[in-house]
Design a protein around this nucleic acid. Structure first.
Lengths: 91, 91
DNA sequence: ATATATGATAGCATTTTTGCTATCATAAGT
DNA sequence: ACTTATGATAGCAAAAATGCTATCATATAT
């Protein structure tokens, strides 16, 4: 069990650098999550999407389960058939 | 010199699959290009950005010169200090 | 002329992704 | 019970990115 003291220590231990890393992880998670969501919405299985993209089902499974961090081109290749793309925004 | 006949043959030879790949390449190029642009706008050198991101200058040079295709987390790590991020959009 | 900054590049080791193939557990439908 | 579909997973080889260090050519400033 995590005590309040431990919790607050953890909070304090998050420096700006760690905060940025967390933001990146969350961003990545949201992108992958949306891919999974859209694939489900369209009723496409991993095997079907894999065939469309010309890649093995195991690769998609690894990405969707966060086992690997995909390259940007792999990500775009996955998103294309789902009607998705990536855009730059400024904070 | 490219003749009209050759040009039209090239056009016809672009099947939907190739078209999607080209779109992905263009998207990637636009993202990388915007990173370079923003880095210049902020007057930051590759060495400086590298130090901020905690990665070697050579890695940034390789990405900006399209020598390598970065992983999505590497891309986000680069964009973060430039005030940029990636967002999903639907076509 | 000299010094400094910059981006590109090279070589090498390490890490990681990807492709390929196969299998497994589970769920759903017949 | 049996088949089918699905996602997860495993093992292995190949390809690729990354880290690290150093160097080079060029431009710019002093």
């Amino acid at each position: 069990m995590t005590t309040w003291k431990e919790y607050k220590n953890n909070i304090k231990s998050i420096n700006p650098q760690e905060k940025k890393e967390i933001e990146d992880i969350e961003k990545l998670a949201s992108i992958i999550g949306e891919i999974i969501k859209q694939r489900h919405n369209k009723g496409i299985s991993q095997r079907e999407l894999a065939k469309i993209c010309g890649m093995p089902q195991s690769s998609i499974a690894r990405i969707e389960s966060f086992e690997t961090t995909p390259k940007i081109d792999t990500l775009l290749k996955l998103m294309q058939p789902l009607g998705m793309t990536l855009n730059i925004s400024y904070v």
